[in-house]
């Protein structure tokens, strides 16, 4: 992350989001100091899963980035399993059951993992990460996630040397996901990363946002967040991670391989057939802003050195 002055993250925006969701301003302002003293600021206990969520801010947001209000983050969701209308997802996902939720790590690993997600998240220090989320449709948000780096889980599972890619799976469950099987898509939703992408410290398994457990519409109980890639790579409601040797098939590139590539790195120079990608609209703002290569996360550029980003879109 770019290390910048945390004071510049506009506190007004934080207060705009409902008071009860966090004393986030405080956390953003003082967590670095507290963490240095070995103190973890306590945030609210999640009501959704009963998991006490503690957050330590582990990154610094971009200067000038304003948090997208909670109401907007939780009421404008691309989650095709529930609805193809972003504004309808929250309501349709309201009764989504995330407990019990078996989570497995399998494939080319030395120590396969299989346990309930509530047990899994107890094993890791939950960090707060303020990330940009850039959707391929040309809109973006800034979201304070809670989670832990995927690399910690991968390290525990013991990735074998023949593993080259990480595949993420979600349940196929028509009772829970009403659209499973519909519209000709390759359900269930699957995604994938190259192993080095998955092991990058920015790559997060998120379990919460704004100090609370993830609401269903944002990918409860656990989801991927890869902030330098278009949002569809950040698969929601994951139930399995599989280490594989071949590049896995993914939901959107199965639907339309010419439109959605495997890498899907945010890149203003590579237009999508329907959306020019040089600008974006921050949700809550009227004017478009320029889109940055890798969504501004220039520290991941080394992963793609020597690669043709137009060809490997």
């Amino acid at each position: 992350m770019k290390l910048t002055d945390t004071e510049k993250v506009t506190p007004e925006a934080l207060f705009l989001s409902r008071r009860k969701f966090l004393k986030l301003a405080g956390i953003l302002g003082v967590s670095a100091a507290l963490a240095a003293c070995g103190i973890q600021p306590q945030t609210e206990t999640s009501t959704a899963t009963g998991v006490p969520i503690t957050g330590v801010l582990e990154n610094t947001p971009f200067p000038g980035d304003t948090l997208t209000p909670y109401e907007l983050v939780t009421n404008y969701n691309n989650f095709y399993e529930f609805s193809l209308n972003k504004e309808d997802v929250a309501q349709k996902a309201a009764n989504f059951k995330t407990s019990p939720w078996q989570f497995t790590v399998s494939g080319l690993v030395n120590n396969p993992i299989s346990l309930d997600v509530s047990e899994l998240i107890k094993k890791y220090v939950i960090e707060e990460r303020v990330y940009r989320m850039r959707c391929v449709e040309g809109w973006s948000m800034v979201i304070p996630w809670l989670g832990f780096p995927l690399q910690k889980l991968l390290a525990e599972a013991g990735v074998r040397s023949d593993a080259k890619y990480v595949k993420f799976t979600t349940p196929y469950d028509h009772d829970q996901f009403p659209n499973d099987g519909a519209y000709g898509f390759a359900w269930p939703y699957t995604e994938g990363l190259r192993l080095d992408e998955a092991q990058h410290d920015l790559t997060l398994l998120a379990i919460g946002l704004y100090g609370k457990a993830l609401p269903p519409q944002d990918g409860a109980p656990i989801r991927l967040v890869v902030p330098w890639k278009y949002g569809f790579k950040s698969v929601k409601s994951i139930n399995g991670i599989e280490l594989v040797s071949e590049q896995p098939q993914t939901f959107w590139s199965s639907a339309s391989p010419t439109e959605y590539g495997f890498f899907a790195n945010v890149n203003p120079a590579v237009p999508h057939p329907r959306w020019a990608q040089d600008t974006e609209r921050r949700i809550g703002e009227l004017e478009r802003r320029p889109t940055e290569l890798f969504n501004g996360y220039s520290e991941v550029a080394f992963l793609y050195e020597g690669m043709d980003l137009v060809k490997n879109f």
Binding site: E137, G184, F185, A255, S256, R274
Partner: peptide
């Protein structure tokens, strides 16, 4: 038709 997110060729999408 062409503005829909999906694949017009295979009618994958809405």
């Amino acid at each position: 038709f062409l503005s829909i997110k999906g694949n017009a060729g295979t009618l994958t999408g809405t």
